[in-house]
């Protein structure tokens, strides 16, 4: 299977502080891939590097088999249309209504008619479980969970092939979080998405994640399917997965 995201030997330093010291991972097509780690382990920094918001001190990142260090501005623009990034707190544009937030990439990148854009906006809203009437509201009038759903609708506007999700289920109620999970799986299956997410949600990890990597000590200390990761004896894996509560829950894995 083709690799969609490949991170090779990333080293990141902020001044004297080392964040990553040789991080490598590979996300294959059609996969739901999770990155786990303690707070401060550099998950968000890694996500920012993969989404070209930050440059690593050294190392290579390949998106759709292209080294993002060496590609032309044109190719960068093409990649940016082919991926979607969902930020932890949604990052909806506060000065635009929900409808305009979702329509913005459609208006900027396509010549679709207003009528068609309206149809797409409605469909995306309903896809993520929001009523059409929400579209006239502004981001500050929505609750946190609704903001997250609206942001996902915006992320999906151009039907990206690759989705980066930063803690997609944090801040959602358990029922909403599971619905979000099944929505992600469904979208992956039907639209052939590849999904890279940062998450701490054990239910998400157990139910929908295909493979995961664990960041600790500035490195990837374990990676693979959940079963493979559980073989690791690293202290973080022990702490995160092998407490009493989880021993009961993960017996069948």
């Amino acid at each position: 299977m083709r690799s969609v995201v490949r991170v090779e030997n990333i080293i990141t330093k902020f001044g004297e502080k080392i964040v990553h010291n040789g991080v490598s991972l590979e996300v294959k097509e059609h996969e739901i891939y999770a990155i786990l780690g303690e707070s401060g382990s550099g998950k968000s920094t890694l996500l920012k590097e993969m989404t070209m918001l930050l440059k690593p001190t050294s190392g290579d990142i390949y998106i759709f088999d292209k080294n993002i260090k060496k590609i032309s501005p044109k190719e960068i623009a093409a990649i940016k249309q082919a991926w979607g990034v969902l930020f932890q707190f949604g990052a909806l544009f506060t000065s635009l209504s929900i409808a305009n937030n979702i329509a913005l990439p459609l208006k900027e990148y396509t010549k679709l008619s207003k009528r068609m854009i309206d149809v797409i906006v409605d469909a995306k809203l309903e896809m993520v479980g929001l009523d059409r009437s929400v579209k006239y509201l502004y981001p500050h009038e929505l609750s946190g969970g609704m903001v997250k759903r609206a942001a996902l609708a915006r992320t999906l506007a151009l039907d990206p092939k690759l989705l980066f999700l930063d803690e997609p289920t944090s801040g959602l109620d358990p029922v909403g979080a599971r619905a979000f999970d099944s929505l992600i799986v469904e979208l992956r299956d039907i639209l052939d998405l590849t999904i890279v997410m940062i998450t701490h949600d054990l239910d998400t990890i157990e139910n929908i994640v295909d493979r995961l990597s664990i960041l600790a000590d500035h490195k990837v200390v374990a990676s693979g399917t959940l079963k493979e990761v559980l073989q690791s004896k690293h202290p973080f894996v022990e702490k995160f997965f092998r407490n009493e509560y989880l021993n009961k829950r993960l017996q069948h894995v």
Partner: peptide, 22 residues
């Protein structure tokens, strides 16, 4: 089959979690 699935997904009555009174 995938196209069929996609159309079904889009036509499915959404489980609306939030509505706005406007």
């Amino acid at each position: 089959p995938k196209v069929k699935q996609l159309i079904t997904l889009l036509k499915r009555k959404p489980q609306v979690i939030a509505k706005a009174n406007l």
